[in-house]
Amino acid sequence: TTYYDVLGVKPNATQEELKKAYRKLALKYHPDKNPNEGEKFKQISQAYEVLSDAKKRELYDKGGE
């Protein structure tokens, strides 16, 4: 599973699309609303952290993490 899959976006997604997808999923899986989905929330946050940063995203796209 790639970070793009976690957020449900395509690899060519814009920053705005990433932000929108992250917010939607973060609300859905937030531990306050969904106590059993803490791990999913962490995955979503990690994916967004990497993909929202241009340098980290470039490194990730080249095969790094």
Rank of each mutant, 00 (worst) to 15 (best):
Y3V: 02
L27T: 12
D32V: 11
Y3Q: 02
Y48H: 02
T14W: 01
E49S: 10
L7F: 02
Q43P: 03
E37G: 14
L51M: 01
Y22Q: 01
K24V: 10
Y4W: 04
A13W: 01
K55D: 08
Y29S: 03
E49N: 09
K55V: 15
Q15N: 10
Y3D: 01
A54K: 12
L51C: 01
A26V: 14
D53Q: 05
K40H: 11
N12P: 02
S45Q: 15
L18V: 11
A13Q: 02
E39S: 07
P11C: 10
R23K: 13
K33R: 14
S45L: 15
F41E: 02
L59F: 09
G63H: 15
L18D: 00
Q15M: 14
K62Y: 08
E17I: 05
K10T: 12
V50G: 02
Y22T: 01
Y60S: 03
T14Q: 03
G38A: 15
D53Y: 02
K28P: 03
E39I: 08
N34G: 08
H30C: 09
E16P: 06
Q15K: 08
A26E: 13
K28Y: 09
G38W: 15
D53N: 07
K19S: 14
K20I: 14
K56I: 05
V50Y: 06
L27S: 13
G38K: 13
Y4P: 00
E16S: 10
K62V: 07
L51K: 00
K20T: 10
G63Q: 14
A26Q: 10
R57P: 02
D53M: 03
Q15A: 13
G8K: 05
T1I: 14
K28M: 14
A47L: 01
K40I: 12
K24Q: 12
Y22D: 00
Y60H: 04
D5W: 05
F41N: 02
E37A: 11
E49Y: 12
E39M: 08
N12Y: 09
N34A: 12
E65A: 14
A47S: 03
P31Y: 06
L18K: 00
K62F: 07
E65F: 14
L7G: 00
N34E: 07
Y22C: 03
R23V: 15
G38Y: 15
E49T: 07
K40E: 05
K55I: 12
Y3L: 12
H30S: 11
V6M: 08
L7A: 00
K33T: 13
E58C: 10
K33W: 10
S52C: 08
T1A: 12
Y48N: 02
A13N: 01
E58D: 13
N34I: 05
T14N: 07
K56A: 10
K10C: 14
K20S: 14
L25V: 03
Q43I: 11
R57M: 03
V9I: 07
K24A: 11
H30P: 04
K20Y: 09
P11R: 10
E39G: 09
V6E: 04
L51N: 00
K28E: 12
K33H: 14
K10D: 09
N12C: 11
Y29P: 01
R57K: 06
E65M: 15
N36H: 12
E49Q: 08
K56P: 02
A13L: 02
P31C: 07
K24D: 15
I44N: 01
T2P: 04
T14C: 04
N34D: 08
A21M: 04
A13K: 00
E39N: 08
T1M: 14
D32C: 14
L25G: 02
E17C: 05
L59M: 13
E39K: 08
R57L: 03
A21K: 04
L25D: 01
A21L: 02
A54H: 11
V50P: 00
K33F: 15
D61H: 03
A13T: 05
K62Q: 13
K56M: 12
L7T: 00
T2N: 13
Y60W: 03
K10F: 08
P35C: 07
A26C: 14
E65Q: 12
Y48I: 04
E16W: 09
Y60C: 04
Y29K: 01
T2D: 11
D5M: 07
G8F: 05
A13I: 05
K33D: 08
E65W: 12
E58G: 06
V50S: 04
K55L: 09
P11M: 10
Y4D: 00
T1S: 11
E58P: 04
K20N: 14
D32E: 11
R57G: 03
A26T: 09
L59V: 10
D61F: 02
P11A: 11
L59I: 12
F41G: 02
K55W: 08
L51Y: 00
Q46L: 14
